[in-house]
Design a protein around this nucleic acid. Structure first.
Length: 762
DNA sequence: CGGGCGAGCGCC
DNA sequence: AAAGGGCGCTCGCCCG
């Protein structure tokens, strides 16, 4: 039986204190007025130390009569409880949020007491979605012995009813939980901490069983969260607001200019487009918008209704006879095509859109290219639709003078909406608070909103206007006065890790000799003579035959991640046979790479898990299930245990459409698992190297008492923000740590630069 | 009108 | 007949 207590009297606090004293592990959760720690209030918190129990301490109550939050006496009397919390092992679900909320509201730093975040705990033993508290609980409800589904539904219904009754809003963007009845909030808050504790207990057993405790608590996950992630999200990065505003104004003008130019140039094709568009959106009708506009167009002498529209009643229309338009509206069949078009256009004009073709709509562009201009698409989307993507546009670039403009138009719009507009609208007093989520990728990389900052372009790589705005984006992030950034990128981290993980001495030697990775592989694979992989040599491949090096770039990492001859042939414009040979030669040149790939496949099939050298596990239960359940006619594997190729599968099953479809889907999944198993070992180790460097850097900053922090991590790049006077000295320390905290069999290099924005030094 | 989704494109 | 991994964000469009 569950027993949740919602405190109402100050005297009850001592009960809570006794409860806390008796528990070692305590689940903790805040209830708030919103998601912004800098603006929103903590209205109360709940704790659970024993499954099935919980306490809620309310700080605010929503007064329905005054429609205001009123503060309660617990607000000033919680010091003892707060201090007690700091002595516990706290369990939270999405701890970054609660920790930042508590510090912003009460200047209480819970990070030192934070023991486990159940989101990253769940992620460490099960990387796949979902990660919401209740969603996780639903998945394991049999194991934890609760009907979470039922309880969650009831809770949802009760909360929504209460919020609505008290005049609150329940939309996704504005969910005013704090307006629900206090008692209800309190009980459900306790239910949440109860779930959190149960989830913790459940996954802790698995963590231990899988030997992941050290990886989780000591080496990476929790230290990264406590010492890097939360501080990073809490402090944010300054942005240059006025530069953002200028850029926004400017790019709007440049986009408008491009749009006008494009519309002028495509005007010969627009009548065809218009016919299609109007016919689709405003087809002839005897009622509604079209009928109204038709009556207007025909100037029918009709009386007006109260709402100001023309009355299309039978008697009114009959009084207009004889008239072909009135006849049509009364049920007649005939209406002239060009008149239909004219009326549709009147309807469209009312919509107020500036142009009939929307250059942002892929739908519209596809119509233009594939139906009106009768071009053939190059690629198809996964759903079989023709694609009007950059590959296609590139192919018709010289054929139509508007296409280069359209490509620029696309890029500029992307830069505007994804970067300029977003950073401007989300910045808060000149600080952008990025998210860094440790559970969003299977590899243990961060997921977040700073991961896709465009990399700067060299002059000539793109048109002038695109280069201008692309190179602006990283400059918006500034260190601010008195502060500097130290910005350090690992030099080709993923290729280094790849060479290390493969265990192939030939691959490793490339880096040991300081030669160019792609050129070396091209020379070894294709038996090239008279060229060198030495970047300083006169006959350096990258200099004397750049396309050959580019070719190698396409397959060096692609092949180990599962790239096959057919796909490669489309990338290189070679025959599949040639590519088959190329791949064979590549793998023969580096025999350990080949055997590593085979071992990885075996591991994935037989056990359904792979482990990165740093200790993270990728769980692929289904891969092992496919392999071990593999029987008879529906087998995915041949007698040697190799995945059937697509052609064999087709031969075996194409006569039965549905089972072929099913087998194809299964094979695709299995192939994906096999590829992912290989990719994971490399990507995940690279992520661990960067993550552990971040932890070491944060610790060193703290040890030296420097007011600095890791403010951004983008896969193989770490940016620290710190006081200017410390920057030069600490940059050496930072570089040393990045190159040395996690040792692999090759030396790593991470040159550190001092900068005042994210662009400098690139 | 909000949610969901496909398509496209940005990053490593 | 098929066609490299990991992501996030934005858009337009569709649907209830």
């Amino acid at each position: 039986m569950k027993s949740y207590r919602v405190l109402s009297e100050l005297s009850e606090l001592s009960e809570l204190e006794t409860y806390l004293k008796s528990c070692e592990y305590v689940a903790f959760d805040t209830e708030t007025t919103g998601l912004n720690p800098r603006k929103d209030k903590v209205i109360g918190f709940s704790v659970t130390g024993i499954e099935g129990t919980g306490y809620y301490v309310p700080f605010y109550n929503f007064n329905v009569d005054s429609a205001e939050l009123e503060s309660l006496e617990f607000l000033d009397s919680c010091q003892t409880v707060f201090e007690l919390l700091l002595t516990k092992k706290l369990i939270m679900h999405n701890a970054s949020f609660d920790c930042r909320m508590m510090r912003a509201n009460f200047n209480l730093n819970l990070i030192p007491a934070l023991y486990c975040d159940t989101i990253v705990l769940k992620h460490t033993v099960d990387e796949d979605m979902p990660f919401g508290l209740k969603d996780i609980a639903k998945r394991i409800q049999n194991e934890i012995g609760l009907d979470v589904t039922k309880a969650a539904n009831e809770e949802q219904v009760a909360m929504v009813a209460s919020i609505k009754q008290n005049g609150g809003s329940i939309t996704k963007d504005k969910y005013e939980l704090y307006k629900a009845d206090l008692k209800l909030i309190g009980e459900y808050a306790c239910a949440d901490t109860d779930l959190t504790l149960r989830i913790f207990n459940y996954y802790s057993t698995i963590l231990k069983r899988e030997g992941l405790e050290r990886f989780f608590y000591k080496d990476e996950v929790m230290p990264l969260l406590k010492e890097v992630t939360i501080p990073m999200e809490e402090r944010g990065v300054p942005v240059d607001v006025s530069a953002l505003q200028c850029a926004q104004e400017e790019i709007i003008l440049d986009i408008a200019k491009l749009e006008k130019n494009i519309l002028d140039k495509i005007s010969p094709y627009l009548p065809d487009f218009e016919r299609w568009y109007l016919g689709k959106n405003y087809p002839p009708r005897r009622s509604g918008e079209f009928a109204q506009k038709l009556a207007e167009y025909a100037r029918l002498p009709l009386p007006k209704t109260k709402s100001g529209r023309l009355s299309l009643s039978k008697s009114a229309l009959e009084s207009c006879l004889p008239n072909k338009y009135a006849e049509y509206l009364l049920g007649g069949e005939y209406l002239d095509d060009h008149e239909v078009l004219a009326v549709s256009k009147l309807c469209w004009q009312d919509s107020g859109s500036p142009a009939i073709i929307n250059l942002l709509s892929k739908h519209h562009l596809k119509r233009l290219f594939f139906k009106i201009l009768n071009e053939k698409s190059i690629n198809k989307t996964p759903t079989g639709q023709p694609q009007a993507d950059t590959v296609f546009l590139e192919s018709v670039r010289s054929k139509y003078d508007f296409v280069p403009l359209l490509m620029d138009f696309n890029k500029l719009n992307k830069l505007k909406s994804a970067y300029i507009d977003r950073f401007l609208s989300e910045q808060d007093s000149g600080i952008f608070y990025p998210r860094f989520q440790q559970h969003r990728t299977v590899s243990g990389r961060y997921g977040g909103d700073l991961m896709q900052l465009p990399r700067p372009l060299e002059p000539g790589q793109a048109s002038e206007v695109v280069t201008k705005y692309t190179n602006m984006i990283r400059k918006f992030f500034i260190s601010g006065s008195g502060y500097k950034f130290i910005d350090a990128d690992y030099e080709s981290l993923e290729p280094h890790v790849f060479a290390h993980v493969s265990g192939d001495e030939g691959l490793k030697d490339i880096f040991r000799s300081g030669k160019d990775f792609y050129s070396s592989i091209a020379i070894a694979t294709e038996n090239l003579n008279g060229v060198s992989a030495d970047k300083k040599s006169d006959n350096y491949l990258g200099k004397v035959d750049k396309p050959l090096r580019q070719k190698a770039k396409a397959y060096c990492l692609g092949v180990p991640y599962g790239l096959e001859a057919f796909k490669l042939s489309t990338m290189l414009n070679n025959s599949p046979e040639e590519c088959e040979e190329l791949i064979d030669n590549y793998l023969s040149a580096y025999p350990k790479l080949k055997s590593w790939m085979e071992v990885s496949n075996e591991q994935c099939k037989k056990f359904g898990t792979v482990r990165s050298e740093a200790g993270r596990v990728r769980h692929m239960k289904k891969a092992a299930a496919f392999y071990h359940q593999d029987r008879g006619i529906y087998a995915l594997f041949d007698s040697k245990g190799n995945l059937y190729d697509a052609l064999t599968l087709w031969k075996k099953h194409h006569k039965n459409e549905s089972s072929y479809k099913n087998m194809k889907w299964k094979r695709k999944q299995m192939k994906n698992y096999l590829n992912n198993a290989k990719n994971f070992q490399i990507q995940s180790l690279a992520a661990s190297i960067t993550n552990r460097a971040c932890i070491a850097i944060s610790r060193e900053l703290r040890r030296q008492g420097i007011d600095g922090y890791v403010c951004c991590q983008i896969h193989d790049q770490i940016i620290v923000r710190l006081p200017e006077q410390e920057s030069v000295r600490f940059s050496k320390t930072m570089q040393y740590l990045m190159e040395n905290v996690y040792k692999i069999s090759l030396p790593l290099s991470a040159p550190a630069q001092i900068a005042s924005d994210f662009y400098e030094g690139h």
